[in-house]
Amino acid sequence: MAEREEGFGISTASPSTALPVATEVASDGGYTAGPVLVATDVVVSYGGVHAVDRVSISVARGEIVGVIGPNGAGKSSFLGALGGQVKRSGGDISLLGKDISSMLPHQRARLGLARTFQTTSEFAKMTVFENLITSGEGNAGASLKEVVLHPRKTAQRERAMTDRAWEILQRFEMEHTVNLYGRELSGGQRRLVEIMRCLMRDPAVLLLDEPMVGVAPHLTGKLIEDLRAIRRDGLGIVIVEHALEVVRQLCDRVVVMAFGKVIAQGSFEEVVQDASVQAAYLS
């Protein structure tokens, strides 16, 4: 497991950048050198019913793609197919040019895919700190062999993970929660822990399933700011979100799903004008 060099540098955004939310549509530009994630005609079916029906998506470096749609549109199922949690019955997915379609979730993760879940997935009986260091890209605990046979290397990795964890905790102003169990956190804090866990992995692509649910309004702005800071390092983000205001502020591109199909895509302004989107939301 080679550590990837590029990654979101904590140092690029100090807490002072947690300014009030900017109102213009984000477009930092200059990070579109080839897609990091390409999904083509992905199909997910549950007992014959197509929950995701030939959905394609392409995410460039530094790009934030929003996926919106009414309840039951198949957004979470689509993310599951990308992450490997849900069985895909058709289509191809490639990450950084590698075909990951039939890989297991942990293999995809090790190639640079990180994700959060719609229902928060914190490790409930582990402290926040443990949540983070266990999730790190360099977590030595992933391999029994290494822990037993290479104690020195393991200790080194632990130190690296620890430093990284403190950086990220500080970045998200969560240092006071380090010793709390996952189950003792508030809903918003759990979301943050999930995102922090992903960042421990220096992912190339980040999939977020409704990350703003339960997050206090004043933190939403900060989280948006954080996500923008992250993407400047060339990370591609796919975000499923119901709060259209968040989508408007954050996403470069929006994909609208309904009944498993993509019914529109384009900039936020374009898709909200789209007649079929309005119909889907009203129905």
Partner: peptide, 24 residues
């Protein structure tokens, strides 16, 4: 050890643990 910690992560949330690179 870190391995034991990975076990606990798996116990607490299997999907999340594998999404964090652990081979469940």
């Amino acid at each position: 050890s870190p391995w034991g910690r990975s076990l606990r992560a798996m116990r607490d949330h299997e999907d999340a643990a594998s999404a964090m690179g652990l081979n469940i």
